[in-house]
Write a protein that binds this DNA or RNA. Sequence first.
DNA 1: TAAAGTAGTTTATTTTATAAACCAAACAAA
DNA 2: TTTGTTTGGTTTATAAAATAAACTACTTTA
Lengths: 95, 95
Amino acid sequence: MLKELNPLLHSQLRLAIMSILMNCEEASFVYIKEQTQASAGNLSVQLEKLVKAGYITVEKKFMGKKPLTTCSVTESGKQAFEEYVNALRGYLEVK
Amino acid sequence: MLKELNPLLHSQLRLAIMSILMNCEEASFVYIKEQTQASAGNLSVQLEKLVKAGYITVEKKFMGKKPLTTCSVTESGKQAFEEYVNALRGYLEVK
DNA sequence: TAAAGTAGTTTATTTTATAAACCAAACAAA
DNA sequence: TTTGTTTGGTTTATAAAATAAACTACTTTA
């Protein structure tokens, strides 16, 4: 039987964010924005949702005089991502 | 770079419908409803969207005295599903 | 023949994603 | 030196989507 798909991860942009963070230690707001082609507003909103869920952490500092927002995935985020991927595989396979 | 995910397929219920239909020649409304646990109303709406996109066909007949709605995936639907799966794989792999 | 069940559709509501507008600081240049 | 522009965002409003509720029509059963 097909499993539930975590709705927080089943969103193109949030999935892209998680996918990027699953493949690197940390990534900046600007980098994620470039990679996903998302608008800053949309990205900001979706990052916030992932933070609230405890899937990522966001750190704000300064790089010289420019603000630098860095994101990284938490253990719980990694686990949720893996569960999502497993659930999703059930939908994708054509026997 | 991450590819666009066909929004028509990137929906849990519609993806489930397509997944079922990719694995059988045809399936009834009732069967799909059982397998997906969707409400009849929601299922009806989502099937309609897939029909409009040309991804599935729906045939309505009678089985004895009961209405029988059967669905099956079209060639274009199969293609769209496969493209979606390929695009999605880009998001899932952790290197 | 009244009530309940089956197989759906249509419409309304809620949720979600996205875009637009906005803010603050820095730099640039006239 | 104050006007405009870019960077790096956040907040709020709007559009789109998913879902649920209400409804239809016909059948079965008590």
